[in-house]
Write a protein that binds this DNA or RNA. Structure first.
Length: 896
RNA sequence: GCGCGAUUAGCUCAGUGGUAGAGCACAUCGUUCACACCGAUGGGGUCGCUGGUUCGAACCCAGCAUCGCGCACCA
């Protein structure tokens, strides 16, 4: 610690140490190590994404776990990487292409477009990784993976083929969620229900056999009525019993459609009659199947109307068509009523537009190992924290639906399926191929293309991004069929840190894949992070602009400050309300730490070196023993807190130790030992205690604030040149093992508490800033004689006098402290009346306590039924209050 | 509709049966002092509401309210 800036400047220090750690290969995991393994796989961020606060929270937690595990003597692998993020990335590149070249992806063709995406990935792919490094993440970058690496891609194909052979993957025409903007199918998980203000239209269809008679039908989607093939009523509905089997007129295009009966129809809702549009509603589709109804698709994939028979609607956007269809109905006298109505509409997660239920040919997966996956969490083989997520998980698994894994995109893992060209031509497209064609040998499913590849055409679709992510814990460690050392050593992984929002998308699926392909759970513990909200409780989002850029925060407060600040506000299990002031606290904490070390350095002038030993017990003063005892307790408590993943509490304890205990109490108490006029011996002992305590505290703090702890450890000489604090293991022994700290700690506590009382007394008499105040102590314990200098220092007094026979002048202010009754004789400042009032207030307060306590002990039920220890404690408490009361009353008498 | 959380000082949060806490913010005072990214002192809470259990409830139970989340859904 040579040149001493007054304030800690994190920027350069952080960059320096990160580079040094990389240089020293501190993050690299050694699979051949004898140490027990600890591993985490990173939730791979979107390769072209940029860091947001959620990432910061998530990765700070992982870094803390990884660094702590290293300190605990584990061989740590924190495996990093990125995700190709199919829709998100493709959408970005398409937008760029449109903006810059005015072209769509089809104008370029598949190959040229994919080249563009790879190009984009090369340019933007490194950003988030750089940002994670800035944060201090101790990932093993030599093992960084990308979900579209060659080996990883092989895994995805291999898994597809395996599951296909097992009969779990099938191709079929089903009703899927269709995104009209991204032009692809989506899984159920990618659809978000949102309440919408819409209109409920009630219209009437005329009965064919009874002109002038109508059936009233309610709908929110009049634009699909061209696809109506029936009207359904509940068979139990007496109003419509006579209608079943008759026909009504569909207004446009004109057609006669039957009235069918179906239990699904809710008698209570609307008019009790439901229009059936099998092509555009899941429930309608099922009713259509049951009643063998025609399917009329009246929408193009992009959400525009496809209905050549209605030229005025054909080609219109679905929302415009809705209004126009209603208008047409009105003109035809068929619109009965329009009401305001709130309903839930499914939105595409990515494109944020209403999804369209649509029938199309897709690939589906019947999930493997569902029971095993459910059991693993139910039995505690995999632990969820907070535990309540286990219920959500179980519920999802119980109601699990087949997973639509095909996406009509280009960026991703192409489905490893080939169709015979001639067959395809005969059928005019793959849409008509079904599973029976596989039996006939017209479909090839394999990791490798068929031998006579030219005679085949590959399926154009790619797989859902999550179909690669679910293999992440093992596919990152070994290629298909390989048994690498890393896989043997580090799989199953230890902890997974992720957000509860991807419980279904990712966590649940990884568990199933882990059991299916590695026969083992993929991880032991899942820690679900909180969701970060803004001060108003709103979710952080780009569109709201309420999401601070973590890089800006690191520029302002340092990576350590950001990490620590965020950890301090991270509660267990609930959302975080983000407040920048908290991050500022993190920076202030780093500065406080820095200045504590700077003080030691200025006071001593020398470099302590790492051999700093705890001095012999005889040489220690109460403050020395006390601070080391507190450090030992902190170290022990942290162990339990880490075991329970109480990250917020750990940061609180670290903060409190350094600030309140070390700086405010210990350092202030021993300042006298470091002054020029202090004895060499006192100075030496105090410096040794400082070093022993601080060097170990830095070790404990390191996982939370890796950079500043590394910097200070080096500057103070706590680690040798070329060594790293991050590579150092936590010592098993405490600083004070074998020393009974009880008496010393009690004395120190008495001094600290008494000093507070005396400062308080000074403040009450407006002499807080006078340093020449004299205090006289009556009834002092013997040991006080040795420590009165410290008491004077802490209380800001000129002198502390011990005088058992002291008779204070009448009206002298005095306080009752843990070291006896202390008077503050101050000529000219004594106001007898004010002092009497002050003491009177205190007496009132204590009388209240006595009364309360007496009442409690007078309660027979309490004495009989409460545990003896509690009753004894209460008796003792009452005793103490009474004693204090007596002393205070004497003090009032002494006022005269 | 079903389920899950949350509700404690102005703010962010601890506190799971035995005297209501911390940090910030606020007020007053203070820089020859390691740190004003600081120090000292102080004010501030019927622990969302109503019942119940208990000698004793912020804590356990029931109901309600408000906010948030998840699942399902009636067009």
């Amino acid at each position: 610690m040579s040149e001493l800036a007054k304030a800690y400047e994190p920027q350069e220090v952080e960059a320096h140490w990160y580079a040094a750690w990389l240089e020293g290969k501190c993050f690299e995991a050694d699979p051949s190590s004898d140490k027990p393994a600890y591993s985490i796989v990173i939730p791979p961020p979107n390769v072209t994404g940029i860091l947001h606060l959620g990432h910061v929270l998530n990765n700070t937690l992982q870094d803390i776990l990884a660094r702590r595990a290293r300190q605990e003597g584990k061989e740590v692998l924190w495996l990093p990487g990125t995700d190709h993020a199919g829709i998100a990335t493709q959408t970005k590149v398409e937008r760029k292409l449109r903006d810059e070249e005015g072209k769509g992806r089809r104008d370029l063709g598949r190959e040229a477009f994919l080249e563009k995406v790879w190009d984009f990935k090369e340019h933007h792919g490194g950003i988030i990784i750089k940002q994670l490094k800035r944060l201090g993440c101790s990932c093993d970058w030599s093992r960084e993976r990308f979900t579209m690496d060659e080996g990883y891609t092989e895994w995805v194909s291999h898994v597809f083929v395996e599951l296909f052979k097992e009969g779990l993957i099938y191709r079929g025409k089903r009703m899927v969620n269709w995104c009209p903007v991204s032009l692809t199918a989506l899984s159920d998980e990618e659809v978000i229900m949102k309440p919408q203000r819409s209109k409920l239209y009630t219209m009437r269809y005329e009965l064919v056999d009874a002109p002038g008679e109508y059936v009233h039908i309610s709908t929110t989607r009049p634009e699909t009525l061209m696809g109506d093939v029936a009207v359904a009523v509940n068979p139990k509905d007496p109003r419509y019993a006579k209608h079943i089997g008759r026909k009504v007129r569909r207004p446009f295009p004109a057609a006669e459609i039957p009235i069918v009966a179906d239990e699904h129809v809710d008698i209570e809702f609307g008019t009790g009659a439901l229009k059936i549009t099998p092509a555009h509603d899941k429930a309608d589709f099922e009713i259509g199947m049951k009643n063998d109804l025609e399917i009329i698709d009246v929408l193009h994939p992009d959400g525009t109307i496809h209905c050549p028979d209605c030229p005025d609607l054909d080609g219109l956007d679905r929302f415009h068509a809705r209004k126009l269809a209603a208008k047409k109905l009105e003109e035809m006298g068929l619109l009965v009523e329009v009401e305001e109505y709130e309903n839930n509409v499914g939105f595409s997660e990515r494109a944020d537009v209403p999804v369209e239920p649509r029938i199309s040919m897709q690939w589906f997966l019947k999930y493997p190992c569902v029971d095993e996956a459910a059991k693993a969490v139910a039995d505690g083989d995999i632990t969820f924290r907070p535990a309540r997520w286990a219920k959500t998980y179980a519920h999802w698994l119980e109601n699990i639906q087949d997973w639509c894994i095909s996406r009509q995109l280009w960026w991703g893992h192409q489905i490893p399926v080939w169709y015979r060209k001639d067959k395809l031509e005969a059928l005019k497209g793959a849409e008509s191929l079904d599973m029976s064609d596989f039996e006939k040998g017209d479909i090839h499913v394999g990791v490798e293309p068929p031998a006579d590849e030219d005679a085949w055409v590959r399926d154009e679709d790619v797989m859902d991004t999550w179909f690669s992510s679910w293999l992440w814990p093992f596919a990152t460690m070994a290629d298909v069929g390989e048994r690498t050392d890393a896989l043997e050593k580090f799989y199953p992984t230890t902890d997974l840190v992720t957000g509860p929002d991807i419980l279904f998308f990712w966590v649940a699926r990884m568990i199933m894949a882990g059991f299916r392909f590695e026969e083992k759970r993929p991880f032991e513990n899942v820690y679900f992070t909180a969701l970060i909200r803004d001060m108003k409780g709103r979710k952080m989002s780009k569109s709201l602009g309420n999401s601070p850029d973590p890089i800006d925060l690191m520029d302002k407060y340092g990576a350590d400050g950001l990490r620590f600040g965020l950890m301090r506000i991270a509660p267990v299990g609930t959302d975080i309300r983000f407040d920048e002031a908290q991050i500022e606290e993190g920076r202030n904490f780093a500065n406080k730490l820095y200045n504590a070390c700077r003080f030691r350095q200025m006071a001593s002038g020398d470099v302590p070196g790492e051999k700093a030993q705890v001095p012999k017990e005889e040489a220690l003063r109460p403050y020395h023993v006390d601070i080391m005892a507190k450090l030992d307790r902190l170290a022990a408590d942290l162990q339990g807190l880490y075991a329970d993943y109480r990250f917020g509490e750990i940061s609180q304890r670290l903060y409190e130790f350094l600030w309140s205990e070390f700086c405010d109490k210990f350092l202030e108490a021993v300042k006298g030992d470091l002054r020029d006029d202090a004895s060499a011996e006192a100075r030496e002992v105090t410096l040794a205690v400082f070093d022993a305590t601080m060097s170990r505290f830095l070790l404990l703090l390191h996982p939370y604030m890796p950079h500043v702890t590394e910097e200070l450890s080096a500057r103070m000489g706590f680690v040798g040149k070329g060594e790293f604090v991050m590579a150092r293991e936590l010592p098993e022994a405490g600083l004070l093992d074998g020393v009974d700290a009880g008496a010393a700690s009690t004395q120190a506590a008495a001094i600290y508490a008494s000093a507070g009382k005396l400062r308080n007394l000074k403040a009450e008499y407006n002499v807080a800033n006078r340093r020449d105040v004299r205090f006289v102590v009556k009834g002092a314990p013997d040991w006080l004689a040795d420590e009165k200098g410290v008491l004077a220092l802490l209380a800001g007094a000129g002198e502390i006098e011990i005088d058992p026979a002291y008779e204070a002048p009448k009206g002298t202010p005095a306080a009752l402290t843990d070291v006896g009754e202390v008077a503050m004789p101050l000529e000219g400042l004594i106001d007898v009346e004010a002092e009497r009032q002050r003491l009177g207030k205190e007496i009132e307060k204590i009388r209240g306590e006595v009364k309360k306590s007496e009442g409690k002990l007078g309660n027979a039920s309490f004495v009989e039924r409460a545990p003896a220890a509690v009753v004894d404690q209460e008796k003792q408490r009452l005793e103490e209050w009474r004693e204090k009361l007596g002393q205070l009353e004497e003090m009032v008498d002494a006022l005269g």
